[in-house]
Design a protein around this nucleic acid. Structure first.
Lengths: 114, 114
DNA sequence: TGCCATACCTCGCGTTACGATGTATTACGC
DNA sequence: GCGTAATACATCGTAACGCGAGGTATGGCA
């Protein structure tokens, strides 16, 4: 998949990976892998960025002698996901522009969005 | 709209803007405006990039005393658009991951893609 | 004459993904 | 016991990219 296309998705995917329950770096990568792959260096950069933006909070806990940093999504983080959903509508419109799909009959379709 | 999300779309949108008929910088911006906005500096960077990648060819022509550079999409350019369409399938899968949409019933939907 | 629209272009900056690299512990095969 | 893989974290430098700021030039209109 095109790297540039990934850029807008990575951040929100990380948030989605911790939305249901708190998670930690290594697990986030594994959970995301079937959908979108990212390197560890990228993830930790993103996690730090999201923490600075108050979209997640961090809690360090010990698990079988090894320390783990659990990430918890905040209200701002959930808001970010909602914003992504709005952006998706725009994305669809752009997709149609690129594929020259006729927009007039689109309303007859079951939308791909919310 | 999120800047990062735009990144993967800009290039392919420019190609789409010249796919039906040859066009020039100023017109491309205007045609794209209803769907996605980009500055002149961004466009000319993209046009140069696409030219280097042989996804479009350039022809200079005079129009009412003013010179215009007309851009023409190449076979590689059209291939790029096709690749974008394939990527879209992946995008949809990622979208569902983020929105926690159940994928099991998706096949019952009329897809948003090709 | 001044100003806006048209039409092109360049430079520098900030953001971002990622490979390379490093540290440390547990688990498992040989 | 020892090497290797998996787990788990982190940093640094690089390259790509969008964009604001700025530049050049012509045509049309008030």
């Amino acid at each position: 998949m095109d790297i540039q296309l990934k850029r807008g998705l990575l951040e929100v995917c990380v948030l989605a990976a911790i939305a249901d329950e708190d998670s930690y770096g290594y697990k986030i990568i594994k959970d995301m892998k079937p959908y979108i792959e990212l390197s560890e260096s990228t993830l930790y950069t993103i996690l730090k960025r999201l923490e600075t933006a108050d979209m997640l909070s961090v809690r360090t806990a010990e698990h079988e002698g090894r320390l783990r940093k659990y990430y918890h999504i905040t209200r701002a983080g959930r808001k970010r996901i909602e914003e992504f959903k709005s952006d998706w509508t725009e994305m669809l419109s752009i997709y149609r522009f690129v594929t020259k799909e006729d927009e007039s009959h689109v309303k007859d379709n079951i939308s791909c969005g919310p």
